[in-house]
């Protein structure tokens, strides 16, 4: 009998080429706890990859990603590719890419930034540098290059 390491899905999203060890962060971004109880989530950690050496893979049934989630993944796992599966076929496959402006994904690490003081405003960053990725808060102008702890 052939043993499946990761179950194929009929409808949903496959996030492949996630940097080794980052799948759990991707799950956090996806908010998989909000999925209905009939949806399967498969996670493969530490999988051989010709491109990356080692990689992680996440498959989520019955979920297509909002632009906000795609942007968050682009920040945490810039090598990731996203495939949308409908009726067991790959309908769309693309690499994640960072837009010039990112709103509502991260909070500003500056505790004195106005966005951390109860104002009715989304945090917002523009891309200061792409390699390595550095963002700049459009309000307080603080530069940010560590994102994991700042995810909303």
């Amino acid at each position: 009998m052939r043993e499946l390491k990761v179950t194929p899905i009929k409808n949903g999203t496959v996030i492949d080429h996630i940097g080794n060890g980052l799948a759990l962060e991707v799950l956090r971004i996806l908010e998989v706890h909000e999925l209905d109880k009939d949806s399967t989530v498969s996670v493969a950690l530490h999988v051989r990859s010709s491109k990356l050496g080692w990689k992680d893979i996440v498959k989520v049934e019955n979920m297509e990603l909002s632009p906000r989630k795609v942007n968050a993944i682009a920040l945490i796992a810039p090598t990731a590719t996203i495939s949308i599966i409908r009726d067991s076929k790959v309908r769309e496959k693309r690499s994640v890419s960072l837009p010039d402006r990112i709103a509502g994904v991260l909070r500003c690490p500056n505790p004195n930034c106005i966005t951390n003081h109860g104002e009715p405003v989304e945090s917002e960053f523009d891309v200061y540098r792409r390699r390595p990725v550095t963002l700049r808060c459009i309000y307080c102008e603080r530069l940010v290059d560590e994102f994991l702890k700042l995810l909303r």
Binding site: N112, C113, I114, T115, H117, E119, I138, Y139, C140, E141
Partner: peptide, 26 residues
């Protein structure tokens, strides 16, 4: 204002020009 970024925020909600006269350590 004592918070960094306060003037930028003010500019986004104000219909009139905003001049920053100091926002925290900003």
């Amino acid at each position: 204002h004592p918070n960094e970024g306060a003037a930028r925020l003010a500019a986004t909600v104000s219909d009139r020009p905003v001049i920053n006269a100091g926002d925290g350590a900003g």
